[in-house]
Design a protein around this nucleic acid. Sequence first.
DNA 1: ACTCCAATGCGAACAACGTTCGCGTAATAA
DNA 2: TTATTACGCGAACGTTGTTCGCATTGGAGT
Lengths: 238, 238
Amino acid sequence: MSSATEIGRAGSAAWWQDRRAARHRRRHRQGGLTIEQITRSALVIVDGEGLSALTMRRLADDLGTGAASLYRHVANREELLVEAVDHVLGEVEFGTPKPTWREDFANQANLLWSTLIAHPHLLPVVLRTPLLGPNAVAGREASLRRMLDFGFHPVDVQPIYTVIVTTALGHAAFAGAIERPGPLRPEVYAALPADEYPTVTALAERTEPQTSSALFALTIDIMLDGIETRYPRKERPC
Amino acid sequence: MSSATEIGRAGSAAWWQDRRAARHRRRHRQGGLTIEQITRSALVIVDGEGLSALTMRRLADDLGTGAASLYRHVANREELLVEAVDHVLGEVEFGTPKPTWREDFANQANLLWSTLIAHPHLLPVVLRTPLLGPNAVAGREASLRRMLDFGFHPVDVQPIYTVIVTTALGHAAFAGAIERPGPLRPEVYAALPADEYPTVTALAERTEPQTSSALFALTIDIMLDGIETRYPRKERPC
DNA sequence: ACTCCAATGCGAACAACGTTCGCGTAATAA
DNA sequence: TTATTACGCGAACGTTGTTCGCATTGGAGT
């Protein structure tokens, strides 16, 4: 309830519906603001200077208007962020399906991950937002369709999809938040007191540093191994 | 850099070291504040009323002091949260190892996940914090030790551990942030326009709702399958 | 063409927040 | 006792998100 208060209704399915309706009955003043402009400018600020740099006054300045004007197009700062999240999800470009389901799943997961990681400051918002915007749902539709086409049983498709997406989101959020000052993990652990943490320091010294990208690729690989042994597939018709 | 500014030095290894030293040279006034008290009260507020309810003034009120007094024990609001995160990680209780490595890994992952999910409002902070506090590192030490004892190759241990922990954290963050108004996912998807999203709605209608706990258990199971096929283990001595 | 009216822009103000300043006080070390 | 240092805290500062009231715009209805 308290977190529902923090988020408000923003991002729910009904909210998106209202939003689409409102966008249609809008009266466009020449040279006036549009939600698209606002969202785009907001993303520029967030990506370049962090989430806390996105101030309503600052955003208004960038757009050449007053802060109060923004509230004619957006109810909240939070709504603004919700809109930005779906905008980012629209950047994910699944191309044509790969020949095997493993390649295809790995490819989709990596595309999602790297798109999200390209906007690291937005990731906290991605996590707290119900992903029900048009771009989010369109992506879901496309991915589920492909999984069916690859011969997975309809009952299995949704759980598998959810597992993969949750993993991609979670890893992106973790990597985007942590790895800012470079991949310093092994050095940090090696520098801890060896008498107190013998295993941690010993392993840290003999382990290669690992980019978060490689770590995610490894995770997906492990998961695809697991999916292969666990879920049967019908042969592809063609 | 901008996110480093947001976090400050708080949570780094050097910061924790300074913190321990400072705690020792402290002068304890009778009935005075302690960091432990402050952290505990902060957690009560965050768990009960959300992250945004944790105000310095509000926290001071709960402790019966003035807001400015808190800054004698804590440099920032963010430092307070970093301390709270390590406090929570101290709640994780790995018991004695389970007979098989699979059971043991699954058990550890579930303990971590459920401890984190018990403090859902703190999860955004967990993600942006380098987990280098005493409780975090002690947990790491114990888990790595166990993995070696189960016969995993020393070179493999750290990547596997990181994959599992990242997955647990990511899933916890996602579940804790989203599932607030109940597990409404299938209904929501089923209610979308069927002509625009045929696959999404069709699958939503024939799929059971799934708790985030079950989803995480499934994810771990899939991952353990993958680890089993991918990483060799030496036989256990005993 | 004229009138209406809802949609839009925005300066000014408000409440709440994190944080700092400066002073008074209490406890420890010499 | 005395000097020093840590602590407590009322008051204030600068920013923040958001609201209010009013002026302005431009399309719909006649």
